[in-house]
Amino acid sequence: MLVIENLSIKFGNFSLKDINLSVQKGEYFTVLGTTGSGKTLLLETIAGRYRVSNGKIILNNTEITNIHPKDRGIGYVPQDYLLLPHLTVYENITLGKVQLDEEVIEFLNIKHLLNRHPSTLSQGEKQRVALARALIRNPKLLLLDEPTSSLDASIKRVVWKNLDRIKKKFLLTVIHVTHDFEEALFLSDRIAVMKNGTIEQIGTPKEIFTFPRSKFVAELTGIENIFEGVGILNKKGSFVSINQELNFFTYEKAEGKVYLSIRPENVVLKKYKENKINEFEGTVVKILEKGFFVRFDIDIGVNIVSLMSAKDFEELNLRAGDSVTLEIEPKNIHLIPYDKNLNKEGVEND
């Protein structure tokens, strides 16, 4: 469907470097990254905004690298929707002599907005109009740039469901750019994580969530427990020593410097020791109740974060300053290759 080969493009002081990816027909593909990672630049390059001198973009077996945007058959919904202020909703959608598609209009519930100007629409209405404008042209590929970034948190989930419905209804192939990992998890068949103009990892949401391949991806997916350690190989896996005091056992194999990552929800708290593997005694430093979940900061020699349900929290009856035992199953400890270019704070060294 869409194949990008060795794409590099320079834009001011920023550049996309050696991008390679393929998106299958009917796939919902998300590009996840922080602000300034190059997500929008990648999307607009696919849509044809910039001239490409290095690399290829192939859509449905036709090279479209440098053809005019009008000839690409790509629908694009920008982050700020870019509805033309001098035209009505109807004129915005049909600009370029396109016939109005009643099915799209009905599906997106914008029939009552057709005679209005964009300045009189809410953010949600603008988004539906921008979507209709792209869908009405039967795009081979739909590009969505941060479609929920300007919406209230309460509306975001509704939009996610709508995007999922739209994709299924119109059998679309979608590339969706976002900085929100939860959004990517909800919608995607596959995710590409971008950082500084390069792709760090491509995989299914489960692969990205469970097996981040770099410290950056781990942090982006919400893993707070990332520690630098030294691995020693063992028959069944490896022991990773942190600060030469704490030894974690994992089924993954590594020798030498390595990052150890543990999802907070896999850190189990209990009152008493049971002499199991990966059990550590510590002190509760801080408790933060976040609705259904409670977040704990535990000092075991390093600060480790644990998440548990409000119900479990009630049963444990823990308070700040209490002693506690925590346990992490070896299968829930994931090792990430050590990146010499990163210091302890994850900032790139010069």
């Binding site: 945007p69 694009y76 396109v98």
Partner: peptide
């Protein structure tokens, strides 16, 4: 750019 992506010359 948005105009071009909508099929305008």
């Amino acid at each position: 750019f948005i105009g071009k992506s909508m099929g305008l010359s």
